[in-house]
Design a protein around this nucleic acid. Structure first.
Lengths: 112, 112
DNA sequence: GTACGTACTTCCTTTAGTATAGTAACATCC
DNA sequence: GGATGTTACTATACTAAAGGAAGTACGTAC
């Protein structure tokens, strides 16, 4: 980390700061958890919904659509009956694993 | 990352998930930026306010108090005139650097 | 006595999230 | 053959939280 110890200084955050851009993506109560679910492989809408106990369909749909619009995941609809939809992280979206991983490691430090 | 490749799986997120705990801390438009400012050393209230263009005093105060209550930073008031307050990350708070660093790296990938 | 700096607080609006109900298309149960 | 179930949503109504604009209290300097 030494060679990057000054990455967080002001001048690097003029205009649009990379930290801010990432913060805007992972902002909200559920976004990180949706991403975490998809890190273990593509999943259907209902699978994500069941895994994230308590998320409302409105919020889940809005988070998935937001991530799709940012090219972090793809949405594939299958014309089965009833129709199913699969969500899968893109290569870009998979790079969020490093962020989620850092968050998980920090979260473990918080046990008291 | 191989030895930890399954860190994000469900069973590790039963109860209170570490990712969720970290997400609750860094949630919001300004929290990560406040932390980033303090990563380069202790700062006064007004210094943080000037660095984060557009933040309202109410939001800044609430973020700083929240971080203080979670033991991520300390607040020291000096009886000068006018009084000054210094905010400094604790050892625990400094560990957020790894999270912010991962966020910065990801944010750089988003340039298009 | 008015203007300034610091560290806030109060008020109000906007946004995020919750809860619940409903839709379309078919398949199976009774 | 009508009722019920499944999937992936959409719609509506409500509440709680976040955030922005503006004001406050305390003193110094001039």
């Amino acid at each position: 980390m030494n060679k990057n110890e000054r990455f967080y200084e002001n001048q690097q955050c003029d205009g649009i700061c990379p930290v801010k851009k990432t913060a805007e993506i992972i902002d909200g109560k559920w976004t990180t958890q949706v991403i975490r679910e998809l890190l273990s492989g593509k999943k259907r809408y209902s699978e994500v919904q069941r895994a994230l106990d308590g998320i409302s369909p409105k919020v889940l749909t809005s988070r998935l659509r937001m991530l799709e619009s940012k090219k972090l995941l793809t949405r594939t609809i299958y014309a089965t009956v009833p129709p199913t939809t699969e969500y899968e992280l893109t290569k870009l979206g998979e790079k969020l694993e490093l962020v989620i991983y850092a968050m998980a490691k920090f979260g473990e430090e918080l046990r008291e």
